[in-house]
Write a protein that binds this DNA or RNA. Structure first.
Lengths: 167, 167
DNA sequence: TATTGTTATACTCTATAACTATA
DNA sequence: TATAGTTATAGAGTATAACAATA
C-alpha cells in the first residue's frame, strides 16, 4: 500500500500564523493563542495521520469510520456530517467499499436512497484505529500533569461546544 | 478559481475517536482529552481552510507561506520544515511560483541548490492571510474568558513544545 | 559516491456540473 | 419539480522511483 496520503513522519514545525494580530503571549514559552492552537492542530492531525497510515487509511477515511461507528446514514446525511459534498462522499465510500470495510444497502423506505454501514471487518478496524489514535493523541500530552490534561480537556470541549445554550 | 481544495463550510461534527481507551471525562460537558483535542484540531483546520480558501489558497500553501515569512530555505530544508517529501514541495512551490507568490533563485554557494523566497506580492498575501487566520482562530475561543484563553494558550504551547529540555 | 532538485507516475481527496432514478 | 445518489472531469496534494547536475 504505497500511497496512503498523509504518513507525516512526525509533527513538523510550522508556525502558520506568526501572531501578527490579536494574541499577546505573556511568557517566553507562550506561542500565543493562535500559533499555539494552529501548531497543536497540526500536531494532532499528524498523529491521526500516522495512525491512519499505519492501518492503510487516510484521515478522511478515519473520520468516515468515526462517524459510522454509531450510525447508518444515507449519503446526503453522511456528507453533512463530514462537511463534504455528496460526490466526494461517493468516492470515499467507494474506496472503502472496494476494500470491504463499509457496505451500501438499499434504504427500505426510499428507493433512491442507500444506507452506509461498517462491515464487521470495518468495525474491527475502526475499533483498533480509534483506540490507537487515542493512545497517540494522549501521548502528545504525555508530559503534562494530570491537572493540566484535565484542564485542557475541558477547555478544548468548551471551545468545540460553542457558547453555552442557556446557562 | 473553482478548485481550492478545502473550503469546508464550517467545522462539521466528527468525533473520530470515541474515547474508547485512556481518557476519562469527569463532567458531562467534557468530551475527554482525545475527542476534545481531535475535534478542536478539526475546528482549527476548518477555520484555517476557510481563510486560505478566501485568499485562493489551500492549507498547504498557507503553511508554506508561514514558513517562508522569515526564512529563505532550500527545497530540502523546506521539505523538512513542512514534513513533506521534496518532490511534494517541488509541486507546492511550482504552483505558488506560477501565481507569482514565491520565487526560486540559485543558491550562491551550491550550484545544485535553490533558495525559495516570497515575492512582494507573496509577502503581502501572507500578511493578510495570517492576520485573518488569527482573527478566525481567535473567534473560535470567543466565548472563553480571558483567563481561559491564557490557560489554553499556555497548555497548547506546552504540548507542542514537548518535554522541557532541562528544567 | 552522496546530495540537491526535478520529473514521471499514481493514487486520494475534493469540488462543480451533468446525469439517472425516484418522490 | 425536488431530492438521493452517481459519474465525468479537473486540480491540489502527496508519495515512490528514476533521473540530471553538482559536490
Amino acid at each position: 500500500m504505497p500511497h496512503t496520503t498523509p504518513p507525516r513522519p512526525s509533527a513538523p514545525e510550522a508556525p502558520v500564523a506568526h501572531a501578527t494580530a490579536p494574541s499577546s503571549p505573556s511568557s517566553p514559552d507562550d506561542l500565543g493563542l493562535v500559533d499555539g492552537l494552529a501548531q497543536l492542530s497540526f500536531a494532532v492531525q499528524a498523529a491521526l495521520g500516522e495512525v491512519a497510515a499505519a492501518h492503510g487509511l487516510s484521515i478522511a477515511q478515519l473520520r468516515l469510520f468515526g462517524v459510522l461507528r454509531d450510525r447508518e446514514p444515507g449519503m446526503q446525511e453522511l456528507a453533512r456530517l463530514l462537511g463534504l459534498d455528496k460526490s466526494s462522499v461517493s468516492g470515499l465510500v467507494d474506496r472503502a467499499e472496494r476494500r470491504g470495510l463499509v457496505r451500501r444497502s438499499p434504504s427500505p423506505h426510499d428507493r433512491r436512497a442507500v444506507r452506509v454501514a461498517l462491515t464487521e471487518q470495518g468495525h474491527q478496524l475502526a475499533r483498533e484505529a480509534t483506540a490507537e489514535a487515542g493512545r497517540h493523541v494522549h501521548a502528545l500530552a504525555a508530559h503534562l500533569t494530570d491537572a493540566q490534561r484535565a484542564q485542557l480537556s475541558l477547555l478544548a470541549s468548551a471551545m468545540v461546544a460553542g457558547p453555552l445554550p442557556t446557562a
